[in-house]
Each structure stands twice: as C-alpha cells, then as structure tokens.
C-alpha cells in the first residue's frame, strides 16, 4: 500500500515538474502545428493521471529487503559509481579487480573466493577484450610503464 502511494506521489511531482519545464521549451519560428511542447506535456499529463490512480488504488506492498541487505545494495551502488569514475584515470585492471571483488563479496561473503574472482575476472576480461575483441582499453594508468 504505502510503497505504491509513495511512488505515485513522487512520480506525480516528477510529472508535474516535467509538464512545467515543457512549457519553458523554446519554440522556433519554423513551428509546425503541434510544436515541440505538446507531446512532452501530453506524456506528462498521462503520467500524472497514472500516478493519481496509483495513489488512490495502490497494490499490496512488495517484500522490501531488510536492513543489512540495504547496506549491501548501497555498497554495490557506491562501488559501481566509484568504478565509473576511476575507469578512465586508473586504467582497467586495478579498478575492475576491486569492483568485481567487492560485488562478489556482496553476493557471497567469502573473502578469499571474492578476491580471486576479482583478480581473475579483471585479467581474464582484459585479455578477452583487448586481444580477442580488439577494444582499446588501457591496463594501467598512462605513464606507469
């Protein structure tokens, strides 16, 4: 109940904000009868309507994960974001090994296996991508070797 209501409320606000920003779209002098504003506003209106239905007639709650699992998920997201930022400056091998290792640990808490998975995946995928598929990846940060 509550989850659908909250999601409906959030999406209602997003939809209204979307419509509001659609009214700010610049139109050019070469306008067609519909123009660039109408379709986004239509989409926003349908979304707002569906959100209202969600708020008024919510489905039963799904089973959300409990405390520790949330922490795991949050760690996974943070690691992935850090990985996204570090892929370019730090090269492929080191960030991949760390990120894959942490993810593996989140899936199954065995430190040794997770570390091995991280290193193995990092080296294996690098060989596969760099030499078999010919993608241009850098193993290490530029200037190390």
């Amino acid at each position: 109940m509550a989850s659908d209501r909250i999601f409906g409320l959030v999406s209602l606000f997003v939809a209204l904000a979307y419509i509001a920003s659609a009214t700010q779209i610049q139109t050019s002098f070469l306008a067609d009868p519909v123009g660039p504003k109408a379709f986004p506003m239509l989409v926003g209106a349908v979304a707002a309507l569906s959100s209202l239905v969600l708020i008024l007639r919510p489905d039963p709650d799904p089973s959300w994960p409990i405390g520790r699992t949330w922490v795991s998920l949050l760690i996974a997201v943070v690691v992935l974001i850090a990985y996204a930022y570090s892929l370019k400056p730090l090269g492929f091998l080191v960030p991949t090994a760390i990120a894959a290792g942490v993810l593996s640990y989140q899936l199954s808490p065995q430190p040794r296996a997770a570390a091995l998975t991280g290193v193995g995946l990092s080296v294996g995928l690098f060989v596969l991508f760099r030499f078999a598929l010919g993608l241009s990846l850098f193993a290490f940060p530029k200037g190390w070797f």
């Binding site: 892929l87 894959a100 993810l103 998975t117 995946l121 990846l137």
Partner: peptide
C-alpha cells in the same frame, strides 16, 4: 558470485 560480477564488468566495458 562469479557470474554476476562478470556480467557487470562486461556491461561497463
């Protein structure tokens, strides 16, 4: 725990 990190890394690359 091997498969899913692998999928993630392939997606990223």
């Amino acid at each position: 725990w091997i498969l899913l990190p692998g999928v993630t890394m392939v997606s990223f690359v």
